[in-house]
Nucleic acid binder design. Structure first.
Lengths: 111, 111
DNA sequence: TTGACATGCAACCGTTAGGTTGCATATTCT
DNA sequence: AGAATATGCAACCTAACGGTTGCATGTCAA
């Protein structure tokens, strides 16, 4: 789970996921073309994405094909976002009530 | 958006969000008790969460109250997870088809 | 078989991130 | 007013990160 968040933390890596989202199964060379850095840098990023299991690779001859694996993103949603989502309005209401309480206290202390 | 992903990338910060999820509106001191690091380190983490707008703070006298703001998480869901979710089965199917194709090519080349 | 192509591996480097320590400031309590 | 409490600010340190360069390896094609 931590690896997934870490992997998503970098814009270049998110861009790579976006590229695969547009066209799945691209080679390393293909993915490099859209990023302004060396092939080796891209390799490292893809390595992290693979460690986080967000990308799965398959060799075809001398080419390495990269496929998007949407499962970890789904897990992040299930185990993280959804949990907060459930209390979304509640949290905002807490904040509002907190603010009002402070304001009232301040008004009392005035003059 | 980048700030939100960066903020979520650290386990200590996710733990802070969890604490606020359990009990909203905690002071800095309160939040510190559950983490094994100095107050100043926690302050920095909370600073990042605040920059990412995941946490909103209010002063009450000498105390600083921290409230969870669920909106950025919701935005991540809308602009990111949902987008990939829509193509979830499709992506897995791409991967499967890719694998089968490679397998067939290998079988042809055998012997 | 030789050359071009696609990728891997490893060492190196500057910047950022996470953490510490020390001291300053503002508020509350007696 | 003075002490205790809650927090802020700044300098500093180490490790990790994002990137580079150089060279090695394996595959395809003439």
């Amino acid at each position: 789970m931590d690896a997934v968040f870490k992997a998503l933390a970098d814009p270049s890596r998110r861009s790579l996921l976006d590229q695969l989202h547009k066209s799945n199964g691209q080679t390393l060379g293909g993915l490099c073309e859209h990023l302004d850095m060396t092939r080796q840098a891209v390799t490292k990023h893809l390595g992290l994405l693979e460690t986080a299991n967000l990308v799965v690779t398959v060799w075809r001859g001398r080419e390495k094909l990269h496929y998007l694996n949407p499962v970890p993103l789904h897990e992040i949603y299930e185990r993280w976002i959804e949990k907060y989502e459930r209390h979304r309005l509640e949290a905002l209401s807490d904040l509002k009530k907190g603010l009002e309480k402070i304001k009232k206290e301040n008004d009392h202390g005035k003059d």
